[in-house]
Write a protein that binds this DNA or RNA. Structure first.
Lengths: 236, 236
DNA sequence: GACTGTCATTGATAATTATCATTTTGCGCG
DNA sequence: CGCGCAAAATGATAATTATCAATGACAGTC
């Protein structure tokens, strides 16, 4: 984990005011005056792929706004297996459950080179008392948590393995905003879909053979409509 | 759905002040003064088993605090199958996602005879602006959403069918606070665990044979520690 | 009390997926 | 440029689970 820079929260060309994802993120609704209430500068951190942002049950002091890349939230099972319960994209907030002095629920690990802003929990709680602008955004971020859980439970852990893989590809394309995106490792895809990496590999191979997916090193490009069609046709 | 009574929010013997689950519920932290800000009385509704509280995508005007019984949140899949994504117990809030003018995400259906309090969304939003006491509770309720999603994704949709059934039984005992509770139908258990009702039935039969579970009409009594042991031993 | 529909149970079989083993590929690093 | 490691791909087999079908239990109704 590497310190990239320190933002003087509002001012300066690298301040929040110029942040390209601020609108969607925690501080999206704050005014100039609100920012003046912040006591500490905001640290921006760089993570390389595989690096851990925090561990479950860590005493939590920060939440993190994802600026770029992708962070996975991981649960470890008693038997050593692991399961990915959520993927965080730019604009998402990691560690939101730490509000009200709760521990982190999961491990947060970067899946790619990523950047996050580290925000002190006490600052968030103070701000939340002194301005009403944070509350709405927090609610929206909580709704996002529920939304994601809904997709996970309703689509990604149901049905045949092929359907799950295809739905995941569509989901990744949706969140990336385009049909080209960084493809998670086979093991990670398995941990998301609750199937083995071998089954993932076989399904991906089949989809490539059908020309619906192309991979190039870490990137995948998918035929979005083709995969949607595939979902409808198969249904088996 | 049947109107049971109308609570004058604070006053009276049937008011919120005397509610046995208020401490954990949405209004748990409100003061006498806060209640005076409420304009409308609170309706208490009775649901019989199988009755629908609201549908996904309904224009949402209310949230509901569960007072007794159990409510399931259901998603329907394109192919007609359904999936239960959460179970709501006394103290839980149904329709929390409707804050900020969002539609309901799921269908809410009573699994047993249940009672809920109907709370107007506009009242919640007004209260939230005028007193800080609601915000903390709301956060706690959101955390509960995430917590449940975590359990669902991390334990109930992973591993062999037997493990899933056992983990669900332990979960139901935990939320009921005792080892005796109303057992969902086989189909519902399947919809929670993403397995078929037949597989559920076979597993339950085996557990009964081993004396770890007893059923009596709608109730089940489990040997909690025995099932925990079973989980450890099996691991297969 | 017979009827009827719903739900649970159980069996037989087919399909799917996990597991284990092996080979291949790709990539970082000296 | 090759070495070595890790991840992916692939094959063979076993185990699990879904599916289909039939039966049994039970509650509500006329």
């Amino acid at each position: 984990m590497k310190l990239i820079k320190i933002n003087q929260a509002w001012n300066g060309e690298d301040g929040c005011v110029n942040c390209n994802i601020r609108k969607q993120a925690l501080f999206g609704d704050l005014t100039r005056q609100d920012f003046d209430l912040l006591h500490l500068p905001i640290l921006e951190l760089g993570l390389s792929a595989g690096e851990t942002l925090y561990h479950a049950d860590d005493a939590a002091s920060y939440v993190y706004t994802v600026r770029s890349g992708m962070i996975k939230l991981v649960n470890f099972l008693p038997d050593g297996e692991y399961r990915i319960v959520r993927l965080l994209r730019p604009g998402d907030l990691a560690g939101i459950e730490a509000l009200n002095a709760r521990p982190y629920l999961n491990h947060a690990v970067a899946m790619q080179k990523s950047e996050v802003c580290q925000i002190s929990l006490t600052e968030v709680e103070l701000l939340n008392e002194q301005t009403p602008h944070l509350c709405k955004k927090l609610t929206a971020l909580w709704q996002q948590v529920q939304n994601d859980a809904d997709v996970w439970l309703g689509q990604l852990t149901v049905g045949a393995s092929g359907q799950r893989v295809v739905r995941l590809l569509l989901y990744l394309a949706d969140t990336a905003g385009k049909s080209e995106f960084v493809l998670p490792s086979g093991e990670d895809m398995g941990a998301i879909l609750a199937i083995t990496k071998e089954t993932v590999s076989r399904t991906m191979a089949e989809l490539k053979r059908q020309g619906l997916v192309q991979t190039e090193s870490p990137l995948a490009r998918i035929n979005y409509q083709g995969l949607e069609q595939w979902l409808k046709c198969v249904d088996q």
